[in-house]
Design a protein around this nucleic acid. Sequence first.
DNA 1: ATGAAAGCGCTAACAG
DNA 2: CTGTTAGCGCTTTCAT
Lengths: 339, 339
Amino acid sequence: MKKIFLKDIADALNLSKTAVSLVLNNRGDENKISKETQKRILDFAKKNNYRPNQMARGLSLGKSETIGLIVPNISDIFYARIAHFVEIKAKEFGYNVVFSSSNENPAIEREMIYSMLNRQVDGLIIASTQKNDEDILKLKEASFPFVLIDRYYPNIKTNYVIVDNLGGTKNMTSHLLKNGRKKIGFISIKSQLDALLQRRLGYESALTENGFEIENNHIKELDPFKYQDEMKGAIKDMVQKVNGLDAIVFTTHYLAASGLRELKLLNIAVPKKVAIISFDELGAFDLVEPPITASKQPVEAMGNEAVEILVNEILKKELKIENERVLQTKLLIRKSCGV
Amino acid sequence: MKKIFLKDIADALNLSKTAVSLVLNNRGDENKISKETQKRILDFAKKNNYRPNQMARGLSLGKSETIGLIVPNISDIFYARIAHFVEIKAKEFGYNVVFSSSNENPAIEREMIYSMLNRQVDGLIIASTQKNDEDILKLKEASFPFVLIDRYYPNIKTNYVIVDNLGGTKNMTSHLLKNGRKKIGFISIKSQLDALLQRRLGYESALTENGFEIENNHIKELDPFKYQDEMKGAIKDMVQKVNGLDAIVFTTHYLAASGLRELKLLNIAVPKKVAIISFDELGAFDLVEPPITASKQPVEAMGNEAVEILVNEILKKELKIENERVLQTKLLIRKSCGV
DNA sequence: ATGAAAGCGCTAACAG
DNA sequence: CTGTTAGCGCTTTCAT
């Protein structure tokens, strides 16, 4: 594993660094370097396991062939799966990926954005805290290639790949209604995230369109960092105090998991007494008792499209086409809403 | 967001690049640069949002302040959680992390190792396919800082952070025995991974030490990529053909999930007829019906320790101390083994 | 067809 | 205390 440099191979072969560099970058023909010389170079490089120093290369070229991925939390299975597909697709295009978690903290997100810029990533995929208008705007003004994923800024025109949150939740709520539920609760996270707002709107519009009232005490929005503690109270309130509540829409997989946990502890029969339904799902939602009906997000497509848009953006430099993609979720019907 | 360089600030302040560089790297005092000059530099840099180009810096310094993480699959919740803790700890030490998935393919793993070396990562954390002795040896010979995580090479002396697979599984099997199970099956993945071998040994030693025979038809090792298809047959074989089999040890969380799925489809009562127990767990194992008893891996400690060892290694350069850590799993007793 | 030389942005001897 | 200079390893223009 002794390191060998461009110069070493030029010296060994009695050629100039230029020739070697050109050939190694597939520009031999184009520069009319004899087939034979090319072969000598290629062979020597392979034999000695030549590997260019990417920092030097990057410095010279002004690019790193790396893309940055910033998510709220890489250990959330949803973002882990996004990362997985981003990685695969990025690799197809020859890019590596560096990742960072913002932990929903806009200050950290900002720091991560700049840290990645310093490291000369060629582009950024961001599942933003959505409290960072300023930096997103700066990226945009600087024409730095980036695409928002999962969460976008409704007021800023950017590339993004998101999901139809309103439609998905409306669909979920309608499903409950179709199954005869009359008093449907809604448990979400207290947050400014547009996705969460849309999910609430979806829930509300399904109710309204079906002739139901929106009752404020049917709606709970929990603290993002204390939802586990608050869940029991929320469930008690809704099921025991709000008379006859017979279903709950959960806006995230972890809320649904937590909610089901509490329902079980409180000995409330699901779906008999209360039906539940979840936006997005955990790996084992089909094994849970009862298996939870959920709107599944198209993670693979999200990852793929984000990378495609980004790479497109990186390569086109100036001539940008803004891409705004809204993908559909898919309702997986299981037992938690009754038969 | 106009980019500003070291030279720009030197020019603007009528100083040399040296002075600026020194001050910005906190070596102002050490080089006896006047407090006042230092302040001017710092202020100007902050005001103009100076951010050094890390590729240039890295090239010059011969390091990147980045560590590489190679795992089989970042979308496996186990590795996602490892990645999460690795990231947090790395950040504490000022390192970024780039990740790659090998998809259990040693050729890809090799490619990723070299790709990361090219990108001048300062160190590597690898959950190896364990079929890459050659490259691991090369890293070792080259004294390149790295630590193995989750999977190690028993025959190669390296730094590693793993888990007591044998002990964990032995513990699990004993737990079943203590609960009165007499005919315990074992479902694993067909693989050369030492972890899996150890888990089998743990199972076997628990049986032997308690005076039970090891029956070959109580043991199934499924194809890593087709285990879902093979699971039904395995379960049928064991439960319906192997007379009176009353428990199954699963060596991974996804096997347990898949196994439970099939047991349910076959209408086999868990734990009444067959108890199950899992090595490691999925997020919702406490919600599953029945909640699955599982040996939980200390992911946070694994990630933390791997980074600590690695950083230590990176900074100490020559003077290495080999660290070999074996952490304990924790048995979470739930309902799937009977009361 | 091939090579010399400058330059990417930063760090660090060394000299003053 | 500060500045000059060389150099990290690679690419690329411009001569030859």
